[in-house]
Write a protein that binds this DNA or RNA. Structure first.
Length: 379
RNA sequence: GGAGGGGUGCCGGAGUGGUUAAUCGGAGCAGACUGUAAAUCUGCCGCCUGAAAUGGCUGCGGAGGUUCGAAUCCUCCCCCCUCCA
């Protein structure tokens, strides 16, 4: 099931499975393009909705396109704005023609149709662009889910028909909510249209995890083997490993960067929070096995201090680390795939990253004992 | 020496007879975040007990008093600030 591959784009090759950090507004928050380069990231994500509202497509296009504008000359994928239909639900109205939006910035009303989503994304000039889809809450009833899915399909055709730039790959997005029937139908329908790549959208938004995995398995089985499969919005390290095992090639998520800004850092031993008092005196690097600038340079106590002070450097250093962590994770995934040892890599990683309840209990007890002895020593 | 104002939990600061272990901030302690309206949001936060619920104790400068009931009313004392001498 799991597989390694390559994605060829106008701005370079991307080995897969790959993770894309999210940079909706033309920046992966807190990181410069040079910072991004230093993490080894191959491809990043931008967002048509955000850049359409601000600064406006004419601005980006006039300044030479998204690569020139943002200073990132590597591959970029832009999302169509379909996700904002879901996340900005209170501010929009959807019908067959498209989506009537109220800008979250100033309340101005805008209209986004499939053709406009393509026009916008062609103007931005990303390497991979997405069809406009309707992403909805996971617990929608079956009839409404079908309605949204069929609309997504009609919009996919319209996107395909209006897409002109041959240097951009247009990917379709499978929808169908939590219905196995609809997901299958969606995968079949879109596959028949012959897109260069396929995304699975509308998952990891609150539905049970077990269901998500089953849906992914079903959909992947129906997608063409020679096209990339992109699971949208999934980016927790353990989720990625599980999805790769089911044949997914491409991921994006705001999680690693957002979690970093909130003090959460990934390590091979799991995720921890730099703000926690237990790191106040720690002189160890954040992750012994990580070679990122943050880990090479600073003791954990300093990072803890920066977070407690809400210093901006905290957000950047943590983001730098988490992105590097994701990059390394994906590189390990790929090398284990080519070595034929992915299954054991997966098992080892998950055991380390997500210890069993028994192990968690022991760790917690140790922590408690350490805290107590520290308190006794200091007072 | 005279006149006025004030002392509330780690800090700031509400509250002027019951529904107050005490509004609200901050600090502190945890948690959540998955195609980024997010440097955001949520919970806990006197002490002891407990996983929790519960239970017990202490409590609004100090000491008395009034009252069924006091951070809130009265008396005395201590301390701080402003103005006048």
């Amino acid at each position: 099931m799991a597989r390694a591959g390559e994605l060829t784009t106008s701005h370079g090759m991307v080995p897969t499975p790959a993770f894309m950090p999210v940079g909706s507004q033309g920046t992966v928050k807190t990181l410069s393009p040079a910072d991004l380069r230093s993490t080894g990231v191959d491809i990043i994500l931008g967002n048509a909705y955000h850049l359409f509202l601000r600064p406006g497509i004419q601005v980006v296009e006039g300044l030479g396109g998204i690569h020139r504008f943002t200073g990132w000359d590597g591959p970029i994928l832009t999302d169509s704005g379909g996700y904002q239909v879901f996340s900005l639900a209170a501010l929009r109205h959807v019908d067959d023609k498209g989506i009537a939006f109220r800008s979250h910035i100033d309340g101005t009303e805008y209209f986004l149709a499939p053709e406009i989503a393509i026009e916008v994304q062609e103007g931005l000039g990303a390497d991979i662009i997405m069809t406009l889809d309707e992403c909805h809450r996971h617990d929608l009833d079956e009839a409404s889910t079908r309605e949204a899915m069929e609309r997504t399909h009609r919009w996919a055709i319209r996107c395909l028909n209006s897409h002109r730039r041959s240097d951009q790959a247009l990917y379709a997005i499978v929808q169908g909510g939590t219905s196995m029937t609809l997901r299958r139908e969606s995968a079949r329908f879109l596959t028949a249209l012959g897109f260069p790549g396929y995304a699975i959208g509308g998952l990891s938004i609150g539905e049970p995890k077990a269901l998500m995995w089953t849906l992914i398995e079903e959909v992947v089985a129906l997608l063409p083997a020679d096209r990339p499969r992109y699971l949208m919005g999934v980016g927790a390290p353990d989720d990625i490993i599980r999805a790769v095992a089911r044949g997914v090639d491409l991921f994006d998520s705001a999680l690693p960067t957002r979690v970093a800004r909130h003090g959460g850092v990934y390590t091979n031993a799991g995720r921890f929070n730099l703000r926690n008092a237990e790191y106040r005196l720690s002189d160890r690097p954040l992750d012994q096995s990580c070679d990122c600038y943050t880990c090479r340079t600073f003791p954990v106590a300093y990072l803890h201090h920066l977070f407690k002070c809400e210093e901006m450097l905290a957000y950047r250093l943590a983001t730098l680390h988490n992105v590097r962590f994701m990059v390394c994770l994906m590189a390990q995934v790929r090398s284990s795939l080519s070595a034929g040892s992915f299954d054991s890599f997966k098992k080892e990683f998950l055991d380390r990253y997500q210890p069993s309840d028994e192990q968690v209990r022991i760790t917690q007890k140790q922590k408690w004992l350490e805290t107590r002895s520290r308190q006794n020593a200091s007072g």
